[in-house]
C-alpha cells in the first residue's frame, strides 16, 4: 500500500469491561484530509482518539493497529508517536505564559534560541496575537486560547492531528471561524486528521470520510472518497 504520510487505522475497536463500544473498523486518511467520527456522547469517541495517540485509560480495552506513513506506531509511547491532539478545552498550561506554552510544543531538537523565538513569534502572528506572548493564558478570550492551543500542537511538528470536539465549547460565530482556522492549517501542513464530534454541522464542513459510531457499537462507512 502506498502510504505517503497517511494515517491508517486497521481493525481498530474499543470495549469496556467486555462490552463493545466501537466495533473494529478500518480507516485511511490522506494528508490534508479530515475524517469525521460521529456519534452521541459517551459512546467512546474520545477514548478512540486516546487509543490512537497512546493515552488510553488502562480501564478500557482497545485493539487494532495504528499506522502512520506506513509505520506501525501502536506499540510506541505517546510522546514518540508524534500525533497531535486538540481537546474541547484548550488545556493551555496555567503556570506558563502564552509564549512559554508555545515553546513547550517546540521540539527540543531545535536548539538555537533565536530560531525558537522566531518560530514562537511567527506562531503568535499567525494567531493574530503578536503582543500577547508574555500574557497569562487566563487573560485571553476563548477564541484566542483555542488558536494558541492549535498552534502549540502544530509547533510540535505532528505527523497527524486528532480533534476531540474542539469546537463544541465555542459560540456559533467563533466556531465557524475557528473551524476554518483549523482546517486551513490541516491543509497547509498536509496533516491527516481525525475529528470526533456529535455535532452534524461539523461533518460536511470537513468534506472527508465520515464514520458513524453509536451505542450499538457498529461502525458504518469508513471509505475514502
Amino acid at each position: 500500500m502506498i502510504a505517503d504520510g497517511q494515517l491508517e487505522l486497521r481493525r481498530v475497536g474499543l470495549q469496556a469491561g467486555g462490552r463493545v463500544l466501537i466495533a473494529p473498523f478500518d480507516l485511511t486518511v490522506a494528508p490534508g484530509h479530515v475524517a469525521t467520527v460521529m456519534g452521541p456522547s459517551g459512546c467512546g469517541k474520545s477514548s478512540l482518539l486516546a487509543y490512537i495517540c497512546g493515552t488510553l485509560d488502562p480501564g478500557l480495552q482497545a485493539g487494532g493497529q495504528v499506522l502512520l506513513d506506513g509505520e506501525d506506531v501502536t506499540a510506541l509511547p505517546p510522546e514518540r508517536r508524534r500525533i497531535g491532539i486538540l481537546f474541547q478545552d484548550d488545556l493551555l498550561f496555567p503556570h506558563l505564559s502564552v509564549a512559554e506554552n508555545l515553546a513547550f510544543g517546540l521540539p527540543p531538537t531545535l536548539r538555537n534560541r533565536g530560531l525558537r523565538q522566531e518560530r514562537i513569534a511567527a506562531a503568535l502572528a499567525d494567531a493574530g496575537l503578536d503582543d500577547f506572548g508574555d500574557r497569562d493564558p487566563a487573560t485571553l478570550s476563548g477564541g484566542q486560547r483555542a488558536r494558541v492551543a492549535l498552534l502549540r500542537t502544530l509547533l510540535a511538528e505532528p505527523r497527524a492531528l486528532l480533534l476531540d470536539e474542539p469546537f463544541a465549547k465555542l459560540d456559533v460565530g467563533l466556531r465557524t471561524r475557528f473551524r476554518h482556522f483549523v482546517f486551513d492549517h490541516v491543509r497547509s501542513n498536509s496533516l491527516p486528521t481525525v475529528l470526533v464530534t456529535h455535532d452534524p454541522a461539523d461533518a460536511p464542513a470537513c468534506g472527508g470520510p465520515v464514520i458513524q459510531v453509536g451505542l450499538t457499537g457498529e461502525a458504518n462507512g469508513g471509505h475514502n472518497p
Binding site: 486516546a50 493515552t55 510522546e79 500525533i83 491532539i85 488545556l91 498550561f93 503556570h95 502549540r152
Partner: peptide
Amino acid sequence: RYARAALCLGASPNRVFWRVKLPM
C-alpha cells in the same frame, strides 16, 4: 488531559512530571 496534551506534544513522562504536573 493536561498530561495527555503534553505527552502528545512529544514531552516524555518525566518531563511532563517536572514541567507540567509539579508546577501546576
